[in-house]
Amino acid sequence: MRDARAHIRRPLGARLWLSGTWLSILALAAVFAPWVAPHDPLAQDLFLGRLPPFWMDGAEPGYWLGTDSLGRDVLSRMIHGARVALMVALVAGTLTCIIGASLGVLAGFYRGWSDRIISRLVDIWMAFPPVLFAILLIAVMGPGLVSIILAIVVIDWTRFARVIRAETLSQGAMDYVASAQIAGRTRFNTMIAEILPNILPTVVALLTLEMGIAVIVEAILSFVNLSISTDSPTWGGMIAEGRTSVHQAWWVLVFPLFTLFLTVLSFSQLGEGLKDRFDPVLR
């Protein structure tokens, strides 16, 4: 159902603008990484080790954000790290969303046995400490991009399933669903045509939040050295390296950490902003 008021465009909130801008910059940097990055992210040069960022004494031109202990360019590594981070965010977030939301709708709309089994599984999953679960899964599957994505899907589907189940339950109890049934729609049609459009805003908001979570999980796994191979620079891996040499070269830790911080904050603010914007009650 569309209300006339929905066509009156509200100005996009500042947080939507800011987070959207940052994520766009990041996406562009990730896509065009080989052309944007000033140096090869893997090229080592021990004579250029631990160069400070450009405004400090002893900086080398061209190495804007300095170099790490092996002489690798921090900025280039961050740009290439954005590829891994955004890839994981996009793929893992979308897959988790599809699987979790489907199970949630199934449990909330059909109830009965499917609900009982799915809810019991959610209970079991919630009893695992998620970080330990992730590390365990990576240990089982072996490190690598695919393992990380699978681990995130396996662990986080419950986030969607729980919320979407509750949302579907409350939507299913509403009069419009009953009238659709009386009007002769099948159960399945009702679900697709009536329920789905109404839970979509929640799904989109959760998806954006999940992308932020996926970035963090990847960083945590790189941090405990269980992410993808050491050949590809990742933010988590850079942070882990920076953490050990923070007293000699703080920039190796600070820049990736700040980037990760901004990215996670942006995904989360984008999710919140979209939720408010699409919320039919607030609109």
Binding site: I216, I220, I239, R243, V264, L265, S268, Q269, E272
Partner: peptide, 23 residues
């Protein structure tokens, strides 16, 4: 509170390490 909530404990830990452990 919005910012504090958006960022998980792992990142806060790193920020704290940087601020009160190093700087």
């Amino acid at each position: 509170t919005g910012t504090a909530l958006s960022v998980p404990d792992f990142l806060w830990a790193l920020v704290l390490i940087l601020l009160f452990g190093v700087l």
